[in-house]
């Protein structure tokens, strides 16, 4: 692309669009229209005239080349910033999606855990009831047999002994069963809790990334100034002397003001 085309592209990129209504609102009654080709021609002509009037041949070429290189560097810098902007934007969107997904998953795991915890107690109670009924049945059966023996052993003694024996067995069984059930339950809870822990960790990590991306957003905030260096008054300004005095007066007043503030 030639320098003229590059300039044209840059002017287009830096221009902003506005409506006639908004201009009117800002108090602009008339606008002067200047074609883009004319602007480019003026810039080109101004640069060449200025170089021609101030520099000798070789130096002029060198300055022209350096200026073109600097201009292209600024353009590239702007393009890089645009690319960074879209990349950061994508990263941010991806991270936000990830956070949403993790939050949904965490919520569903919490619900699942709660259901399991709630379901645990009634199931165990109904199981105990079944076991108790079986034991009572067996005791009844035993007494029935003793009745049939014709009263050789004192009834109450037999009843106590049998019940004692039975309850010991039952207690042992209950203990084992309880331990087994508890182990199973704990394993489920442990598993779910570990999964929740991992999800929390992942959520924290993603949120941290999101914050980093948000901080990086400032990369895309900004439009380059047209000036690379501090400017100051131009030597060929028609009112340079007067303006210098005015600048000095403004500076003096501000220096006094800011000195007073810092004291």
């Amino acid at each position: 692309m030639s320098l003229k085309d590059t300039l044209k592209e840059a002017v287009k990129q830096m221009a902003f669009k506005t409506s006639l209504d908004s201009l009117k609102k800002k108090g602009v009654q008339q606008v002067s229209v200047l074609g883009i080709d004319r602007i480019i021609a003026l810039i080109d002509e101004a640069v060449h005239r200025s170089l021609k009037s101030r520099l000798v041949g070789v130096e002029r070429e060198a300055v022209a080349d350096a200026t073109k290189a600097e201009f292209l560097r600024m353009l590239r810098s702007n393009e890089e910033l645009q690319a960074q902007k879209s990349e950061v934007q994508k990263l941010k969107e991806r991270a936000e999606e990830e956070v949403d997904q993790l939050r949904r998953e965490l919520q569903s795991q919490h619900q699942e855990l709660q259901i399991k915890l709630d379901a645990g107690d009634p199931a165990r109670a109904s199981r105990y009831e079944g076991e108790n009924a079986a034991i009572a049945g067996r005791v009844n059966e035993l007494f029935h047999l003793l009745g049939q023996s014709g009263g050789a052993i004192g009834l109450s003694t037999v009843q106590d002994k049998v019940l004692e024996l039975l309850m010991e067995v039952v207690a042992g069984e209950r203990k084992d069963a309880e331990a087994a059930r508890k182990a199973l339950h704990d394993r489920d809870v442990d598993l779910l809790q570990r999964r929740i822990g991992k999800l929390n960790e992942s959520l924290a990590h993603t949120e941290r990334r999101l914050r980093e991306v948000a901080a990086m957003k400032s990369l895309d905030d900004g439009i380059s100034s047209v000036y690379r260096d501090v400017q100051g008054l131009r030597a060929d300004d028609m009112q340079v002397g007067r303006k210098k005095e005015l600048m000095a007066e403004i500076f003096k007043a501000n220096l006094q003001l800011q000195k007073k503030k810092s004291q």
Partner: peptide, 27 residues
């Protein structure tokens, strides 16, 4: 003036542009 809303800001910008570097540095 042509741009009543921006007249003051444009002037302030011109002052900023014309202010010598050493003055900015000192402040």
């Amino acid at each position: 003036i042509e741009e009543p809303i921006y007249g003051g800001a444009n002037g302030a910008l011109k002052i900023a542009h014309d202010m010598p570097e050493e003055f900015w540095e000192k402040l």
